[in-house]
Write a protein that binds this DNA or RNA. Sequence first.
RNA 1: GGGCUCGUAGCUUAGCCUGGUUGGAGCGCUCGGCUGAUAACCGAGAGGUCUGGAGUUCAAAUCUCCGCGGGCCCA
Length: 984
Amino acid sequence: MAYFRSETQRPDFVKLEEEILELWDSEDTFERSVNQRKGGKKFVFIEGPPTANGLPHPGHILTRVVKDLVLRYRTMQGYYVERKAGWDTHGLPVEIEVEKNLRINTKGEIENYGIEKFNKKCKDSVFRYEKEWVNATKRVGFWIDMDSPYITFDNKYIESVWWSLKEIWKKGLLYKGHKVVPYCPRCETTLSSHEVAQGYRDVEDPSIYVKFKLKQPDTYLLAWTTTPWTLLGNIALAVHPENRYVKVRVKARTKEEDLILAESRLDVLESEYEIIEGYTGSDLADLEYERLFDFATIEGGDSQKVVTADFVTLEEGTGVVHIAPAFGEDDYGLCRDKKLGFSQPVNAEGRFTSEVPPLEGMFVKDADRPIIEMLDQRGILYKEERYSHSYPFCWRCGSPLLYYARESWFIAMKSLRDNLIANNEKINWYPAYLKHGRFGNFIDNIEDWALSRERFWGTPLNIWICANCGKEFCVGSVKELKARAKNSVSSDLHRPYIDDVVFECDDCGGEMRRVDDVIDCWYDSGAAPFAQWHYPFEKDAFERNFPADFITEAIDQTRGWFYSLLAISTTIFDTAPYLNVLSLGHILDEKGVKMSKSKGNVVDITSTLDKEGADALRWYFFTAGPLSDDVRFTEKGILEKQKKFLNTLWNSYFFFVTYAVIDEFNPNEKKIPMEKRNAMDRWIISRLNTLTKEVIDSIERFEIHVAARKMEEFVINDLSNWYIRRSRRRFWIVEADFDKDSAYITLFEVLVSLCKLLAPFVPFVTEHIYQKLVRGVSDDVLESVHLCDYPSPEESFIDTELEDSMALTSKLVEAGRRARADAGIKIRQPLKEVVVVCSDKKRKNVERLVGVLKDELNVNEVRFEDDAFVAADAYKQVEVDDDTALFLDTYLDKGLIEEGLVRDLVRRLQGMRKDLDLEYTAKIRIMYEGDAEVKEAIDRFSDYIRTETLAESIEEGKPSESGDKIYEKDWKIGKKEVHLAIKQ
RNA sequence: GGGCUCGUAGCUUAGCCUGGUUGGAGCGCUCGGCUGAUAACCGAGAGGUCUGGAGUUCAAAUCUCCGCGGGCCCA
């Protein structure tokens, strides 16, 4: 009885994968792989939650298979690896999708439509592509628990987020300030940076040089701006502290006047000038000037003075920069740092308020012209030009965006800078340069986190303020909310329900109402380490799972999720929330350009999965290069992986099964100790164990591509093209044989180990092979390769000397083939001998593998000599390396020629067998016609020919009949003509 | 505009950290060979201004600086 089932030679990998998916489903293999490790060491992973309101693209697939690889690997190593899926569900992108569908644009329109209905639509929309995500996730083999995922819009999740915000609030780190944001005055919406980036266009704007009068007669600071309307909000003028500035005397319309500007910007002056004085920027600090427009009220500090700022450049303008904190982020930050005042003469629609009577109600961009005219009339416009630059416009409606200070809530991250830096030190970054590079630089210069969003669909900001006395209160739980509420509390914590909840002020008895804002959805996902477990309302799961051992996402998350996790964890727990972070590159199209919807070059991953399958795709990603590098996506590349690697692996397995079936080989009955196996066997086992070591080392360093490439080389070169090719004949022996058993048991062991090694990388084909090789054959074994332990190297099986010997032998084989090619003698022609001239040490190494050398070079003898060897004329010499040379005896005697002829005949006969597609074990009868030399050779070697071709007889002559059972062919071998016939 | 990162044969890439034999592979191409697991394999060959330039050095793909191009983040 056969122990193995025969196998198809050309697998349909896609079908195979679908069958494996069904197997895993029906046997709960994933759940069991996790649960059987319960009680073992923990390996904690956090899923960075994707948003399911768009289809998964190739980049998502990459992160999913990398996560899967690492988690399967750790699981097989015995770790208990829980894997909770997560969904990111809040935020502006979701709202924008819904707005598009409703064909509305502005906040006003949303309010008219109804926040309740709007948020319901948002909630429905976030799982629009859930099915596609779940399918893709399963299809590529990412094992993660999608049945009980964390969802950021869940009440429990929100409650945990509220708890954390209250912790921050209690520490006094949550405060209200202003944030300058890109703002569309028409849509009345702030835009995310991603949206802003979409809308840059080159435009021409007025650029004006304005004279700010100092408190000395006829002396002015000359400033430059491309947004005249912002002059109404001017608070200060900035100069660079170290730059050179000069006072120059110029002729104005009627009189002379003095202007101050940067020395290197003097060429902006249009008239003759005379330099009066020079200063550095810091000399100018604190100079006071007269207010340009005396309209808007200024609150909260000084104004109309010169300050220094490092961001002032000398590439354009005058080196004197007009500062309006309401309209520029740098400006706002500078005024805050220098404790200057603030003025906001523009309303939410981008129109001047009643504080500016001459311009009241006018849209700011339309006010540029009247403002320039006003300045000109007052004689303080030095000159006007046009200026081309790129400026952001609203991607929806095309309005120019305004940078605009809005009230906003902040987390005081700047005050925690040292803690962030210290906690970052606890994290291993892959690649390492991110730690002190991009990420380190970012937190070195960290700014406070603008947390609030004036929007609808998000976690409501849990702060209530007393309308009467201004007292703040932050709610930290649902229980607290209910306890404080004067009215009933909805079971849904979202807007608009939460907006109706009012408290009574402890201090004055006034009515406390919630601020209108929701929070940044980056805070939601950054809270995942605890919010996914509903901490602290439920404690166990979080305490087991913090901090995480591992997270991975693409490089763009450096300032996104990687940061928000660290920021929140630092404010609340003052520790790092993850210990290892692997940053991945992006997927580019085949030209090396990023994939984007607008370019239309996004590859449809499902078609790849339907054609080449998940293993080929995974293997392509894992071998393409360092995971931290961008990778070009080409279908050709994936197909090549399937052909080269998967097919070779398959064929190695197929070869084994084919002969194991014929021989009824049973691995359970044969135990052959390593020392009794031949050198070839010990070599491949040694290589396998060396490989195991290298693979583990590489995975531990997250050098996934190194591990994968080493395995690929092993499969193709060592196993398939060397071990199996060299060992083939051992499997062909018909009768029971010790050496044959050694070969079987060795190949079997290698294949099974290899499956385990490869299982985290290509989980489908390895599972299939395991099922056929192990599960179907032996009782009492684990039901899945993914339930097995990951191999660990068996040091006693590693024989580096033997590996070196084989490497040298292989070099000698190559050299011998070169010599044959030089001499024009084909390999099929046997030769008398080859002489190897080398050191004693090498000789000893090669001697144990001399059979391999003889076989590969088709020579009858291998002889070793020292340097003194002098070759006869017939010897062809080739160099092997520095101290090794090889001499091939090219002399052919009659016997050798006959042998060669016979080899040629056998080769033709084997070809004919293949033409007939005969079973490997089918017997044949041979008839031939040829000259006397052919007959003589065949007579002499007839035993050999019959063994090789499984012939029962070999006769001279032509078959008398013809038909299906007879196959005849004329051959030309060298100069001889031979007729061959095969009878079945 | 700023920061970070990548750029090696037609394509995919090793080597770069720690400078030093004629810069290795694979795919594709040409020629020859081999072939009863393999759309495989083996040998020879063509194909490289190692993105451009400058510098450091006895010596640079490798270290430094300045460009160019791709990518990411931020303005």
